[in-house]
Amino acid sequence: MRDRVNRLMALIIQACALSSVLVLMGIFLMLLINGAMLFKEVSVFDFLTGMTWNPGAFDGPAYGALSLIWSTILVTIGAMLMAIPLGIAMAAFMSEVAPRFWRNLLKPLIELLAGIPSVVLGFIGIELIGPLLQKYLGLSTGFNALNGSILLCLMALPTIISLSEEAIRAVPFSFKEASYGLGAGKWETLIKVTLPACTSGLIASSMLGLGRALGETMTVLMVTGNALQFPHGFYDSVRTLTSTIAIELGEVASGTTHYFALFAVASLLFCLCLIINIAAEAIAAKFRYRQT
């Protein structure tokens, strides 16, 4: 009897595990199949290298996703350039340097930051960050890639901080002891021993933060201005892959070229996330290997 129950439970758990894989595969296939329909009418090359995206244009549709791809990359890179150093520094400060009082104060605050809905952050971007950028950078408008990057940095920070902190805490005390024993101070130990010892963990946390930034829609949509132009820098307005889907999916009739084009954009986004995850795994594995 017990044996049978055990076997049943094993079966159920297997089914659960399998179903999540199936759902994932299903989503990917749906995106891919629908997206592929676009290429009956638009060549893959044009889709990937076309500079103009305007399916509802006055003088005929254009399905060039390059500016969307570049917009996404631009905003994400900007966010990571800020979030990774800041996040790791905060994590290091909290786990190694800060007195207990500060740690106890900061940790819940950072968790709170993670809980802010993206729409609220978007609102902050419009009302606060945009005008500040206008004022201090002398820009004519705050609707640009930089604003999006700053907000995405805020969104990725909690992930990066909490995971980095865990990684830093996991560094064996014996390393620190050895460093102190050789006459190193707190900072020297942190920078020369502790952080290098958990590089793989720090990379993993950064990549997860990156994934969060890449897939975020609402905040970016609200503050980047969504112009269709090809962006040349952080002061330009951008329209990311996610924003494009969010803006256009509501007005598109199913089964049209435009509809399939949005699926192609979604597949692109999926692939981008996949590449980042695989790269993260590979980099992390390499560092792990060097340490053991």
Partner: peptide, 23 residues
């Protein structure tokens, strides 16, 4: 004709007013 592609696509009338107020 088609809009210039530098046109900023904001979320609503109120947001446009807010932007113009500052620009």
């Amino acid at each position: 004709a088609e809009y210039d592609n530098s046109l900023l696509g904001l979320n609503g009338n109120a947001q446009i007013l807010e932007a113009i107020r500052q620009d």
